[in-house]
Design a binder for these strands. Structure first.
Lengths: 208, 208, 208, 208
DNA sequence: GATGAATGAGCGTTCATTCAT
DNA sequence: TATGAATGAACGCTCATTCAT
């Protein structure tokens, strides 16, 4: 009761614990962000789900912003190679199709993982449905499309508007796709791609 | 012995300050919501900007939800007649064009008013950029498009996806439009409409 | 809308209104104190039930303490003549019996009126059950008994303790009586009186 | 490379201040409840007297109800063994006497401690005079008497009225006893017991 | 590095009371 | 006198963050 108990662990273990703690925090944060949304989520929520002490959180991240960024970076990092293989290719049509498919696929996977991991016990919980990874990957795709268009790989139209339109279609159709069972990536991608490419086609003819 | 019993009815001064206070609160709330976003905004933020006492807020609204709703309702109410004149028309093309134009026009006006009123003194302030009115009107347009498509006024394609795509294009292009100077409603609307209608055209041919 | 409407009423009416308002406040206060208890009751609760304006309350009473006192005084005033007819009589036994009966009768009446007036619609409301009048009348009885004993009309025992014991018996038995249906004043009074008088009898013999 | 992983177990200093703080809160709460009464007391009153930060209170108790209960439980727990030794004894007279003595003794101790600790500097402060412990112990005694009578250990009279009368006598005489200097437990207990037992005696003869 | 209690600013809200009308 | 909106102190409570252990 009145003395400290000290347990010495081998150094390897300690490193392991560090990795484990960091992962615990990330996992808890993903859950919390997914369920509550970024704004509603609090550091305390994350800590609670972690089982760690409050102070421990701050050994790894300085704020909820930072954990969010870490998760987003992780998503972006995993998505980067996929995206890289698409960038820089010559023809725009192919790029759009592949980018959309890659994006939808990533989102479907992420969403599936997220749905699978959520405990079924709390059905009345408000769910935001988008993890930091998803948000980040959307940002990546957005950037890629904007880039591709700005670099002249796209048609000769108002580049910024075009990118915006592509992104809008991609995001909204993706959202709907994720709400259906089963999640049909091909159908959704076909739809989105058709909308975009046909839309552009018209722009040419209409000389916009 | 004979004295007057006086009944005070709502008269000038009182009623006037009531209206003023209500308006102060709404104005402050619009600012706060526009700058901080709904989630970050607090009742006390609104009160502070109002200069009124804390308790006074609660003579007018019971919560931030309620002020938000009041602002949103105001936006929706102002937009409703415009929208109503579009709904129920037979052909889809015309509906889309008019809806987009109406939406872009409303947003441009709202945005201009909003920008004009914001004090320039705090440039490093996080700005969300969307007032409750804008959010509400977006919701109205979204509903109108979904309705129009669901009621069969749209082409024979996946109605939900189509609505989603239209909405995505409208929102994103509108956002870009609002960032430019001058704000060119016609150009943006032409672009968005072309994307949507041409996109649909292709869907038919592609038998999606 | 923008001008004051003034209604002149004859002076008699005005006086009448004053009396009515005072009574409204007292009635509302009795209800509120009875339902919520003195501590929980707020001036606002009373005002709300009154239908009057908040400021009007302060034209009649300066605080909830004051309304409470007014109600208590009313109870005491109504009880005073009954009590007066008992005070000063020579023999203690008779005094105790009559005081108890008078007290129990008053409380039963008051309680019946109170129960009858309460709206049956809110059965889950916390009810304190004692109006200011009841509290005040208890105080009067207490004073009367203490007086009677202190003036030597009681037996030669520790006067303060005796008064305390009488009062304790009276209060607690009265409470139980009021909880039963039908309220049997005679039975309760007989019991209380017997306890007290027999108790005293023993004190004499025991030479306390 | 080789470093220690340290697990901190509850040790001296931390545990000590926790106990101290908990005690500070309980002490402050007892004072506040004693001076202001349960209803008037606020969590902030307790915190203020404690000198701790506002949030700290909530590390120990969730509400004023909970602190009150903790104090009351403490009183009841300390009184329980004394009470237990009395319950279940056959004859009623002995039970009443012992219960009264035990109750008066406990209250006298509690009251003495309470009076001794109160700072003399604020003479104009409203004092309620009853700590949660006292209230709880009164409740225990009340329950014990009601039980004993209900279980038939009492005389053949209206059990509920009898219990009420006993309790009334005990409470009121105890209050008076506590106001005198010196506090004479025996005298007060003798008085109360005589009142009760003689009173019952009369009930028998009177066939109530 | 891990712990978890302490901190105190800040939140939403209610309240008694005032005072211009 | 009646009105009822304005006031601002105070409440219960939560939070991000710190720091002695």
């Amino acid at each position: 009761m009145s003395s400290a108990s000290v347990v010495y662990l081998p150094s390897g273990k300690r490193e392991q614990t560090k990795v484990q703690n960091r992962q615990s925090i990330l996992d808890a944060a993903r859950e919390v962000f997914g369920e509550l949304g970024y704004e509603q989520a609090t550091v305390r929520d994350i800590i609670r789900r972690t089982g760690l002490a409050a102070g421990t959180f701050y050994n790894y991240y300085r704020s909820k912003e930072e954990v969010f960024a870490a998760l987003a970076d992780d998503g972006a990092r995993r998505f980067a190679p996929i995206l890289k293989s698409l960038r820089g290719r010559g023809e725009f049509e192919g790029f759009v199709r592949e980018a959309i498919v890659a994006y939808f696929t990533f989102m479907a996977d992420e969403h599936a993982a997220w749905v699978a991991l959520r405990p079924a016990g709390e059905p009345n919980l408000t769910v935001q449905g988008e993890t930091p990874e998803m948000a980040a990957v959307f940002g990546e795709v957005k950037g890629a499309i904007e880039d591709a268009i700005a670099r002249g790989h796209g048609p000769a139209v108002d580049a910024e508007f075009l990118a915006a339109a592509c992104i809008g279609v991609a995001r909204e159709v993706c959202d709907k796709m994720l709400m259906r069972r089963p999640v049909d990536i091909n159908k959704a991608a076909d739809f989105a791609v058709a909308m975009i490419l046909n839309g552009i086609q018209g722009l040419h003819e209409g000389a916009l």
